[in-house]
């Protein structure tokens, strides 16, 4: 694997390859090499342009909460949040913010990606960003 964390794509299986990265603890995005435009979710071609000149790269993991809902569960199952996060690189995705009570997850909050291992599979989650990044 290249030192700059860019993986040129040969025989591409978007969903399987993305999950394999997560299972290794790595969050990887796909981008169009001709335009540099990143996109989510991974596809066999770039949306809109149809470009097949693609590569995986490791994003900063920084993001901002775009929308949030708290899913109410029957007790004793705790309620949980579901968020849409706008990544610093542009794409938006669904996830969950951990480390806060659901009511404290707010739109506009700075968050940082983390890959957790749940039942042997990698899952992309977010934590509140460290204070110095929130100030930046």
């Amino acid at each position: 694997m290249a030192a700059n964390d860019i993986v040129a794509i040969g025989d591409l299986h978007p969903n399987r390859d993305y999950q394999a990265f997560l299972d290794q603890g790595r969050f990887m995005l796909m981008r169009d090499r001709t335009t540099g435009e990143p996109f989510f979710y991974p596809r066999i071609m770039a949306p809109v342009t149809g470009s097949r000149d693609l590569e995986w790269f490791e994003p900063s993991g920084r993001g901002t909460v775009y929308a949030v809902t708290i899913v109410h569960r029957r007790p004793p199952t705790p309620n949980h949040n579901v968020v849409l996060v706008d990544l610093a690189e542009g794409p938006r995705l669904m996830s969950r913010v951990e480390g806060l009570t659901p009511e404290d997850v707010k739109i506009g909050m700075a968050v940082q990606a983390r890959v957790a291992q749940v039942d042997g599979k990698g899952v992309l989650l977010f934590d509140p960003a460290p204070a110095e990044e929130r100030a930046a």
Partner: peptide, 10 residues
């Protein structure tokens, strides 16, 4: 949806 399912939206 594969990309939403892990987060258990209703």
């Amino acid at each position: 949806f594969t990309w939403e399912d892990p987060y258990q939206p209703i």
